[in-house]
Write a protein that binds this DNA or RNA. Sequence first.
DNA 1: TATTGTTATACTCTATAACTATA
DNA 2: TATAGTTATAGAGTATAACAATA
Lengths: 155, 155
Amino acid sequence: MTREKRTSDADIVPAQPELEEFIGYNLKRAYVIVQSDFRRVLGEDGFSPRAFSALSLVVQYPNITQTGLAKMLGIERSGLVAIVDDLEQRGFVRRTHVPSDRRVQALLPTKAGAKAIADATDAVRAHENTLFASFTPEERSTLMALLLRVRELGE
Amino acid sequence: MTREKRTSDADIVPAQPELEEFIGYNLKRAYVIVQSDFRRVLGEDGFSPRAFSALSLVVQYPNITQTGLAKMLGIERSGLVAIVDDLEQRGFVRRTHVPSDRRVQALLPTKAGAKAIADATDAVRAHENTLFASFTPEERSTLMALLLRVRELGE
DNA sequence: TATTGTTATACTCTATAACTATA
DNA sequence: TATAGTTATAGAGTATAACAATA
């Protein structure tokens, strides 16, 4: 058994940690970068990522139920209550009873909610355009396509 | 001002939610998919993603300090204490005092720690190979390269 | 029996601030 | 004064289980 010449374990400094070979690790690190920049920009408008996502979907799918919205967001129904409570208190959505099924609370955006999400969406677009300024349009669309492929692995 | 023919807001069903246009949103959804699969596989070996990452780095950079490890992982020093406590209790790392500076606690992997991370690394490789079986090698390396580019945006 | 929204609860992850012992 | 490790604490975010109202 041969042994490399070195004085102690501390001398072993690999050019690249094994960790770096994993997609999961790089995905997380990349996600943290983008999310923290999102929070910095959207914090001014008072939107957390999940509040932004929820309101965006309510505006696009008016009368969506809370269960339906939770499914779209990939979270539990129970977790959505606080999010909707917050959006309702800020006057961005209304819970409305549905006559045909009195269990469900359909969600409707208010005009203020539609305005707020339109402004926030513009801000997020600007944030991503700035953050990804060094990416070519092709690189961005390639990244998007591959991320969609990853998302499909979970279905 | 023209108005499209429709009976109510509920009829508006866009082919694709605006949310889907954002890299940040897709990054998060993709990350959740990969992480939950990681947890399912590594849970058997008793490694959370962060414990796995921490031990992996200690094995690769023996005598790393806690502050140095926290920087590599992108978390606060204080957050690392519980992680190292756990790894030390399980006999995977040792905290050792450094004579030249008695403030620092250098971290050394034990043989059991090196063995455990080697096995877990094999398991993670297998997990990613299975999960990304539908990706070609080129697609995987393209995804990795783009994720690295995103990570660089945060430096 | 099953489902919708809700509450209670707990767990993970992370950050901030303050402490201690060293430098 | 500054730094390494630590502790206390709090805040997101999420999940599970159970409940009332309704189907």
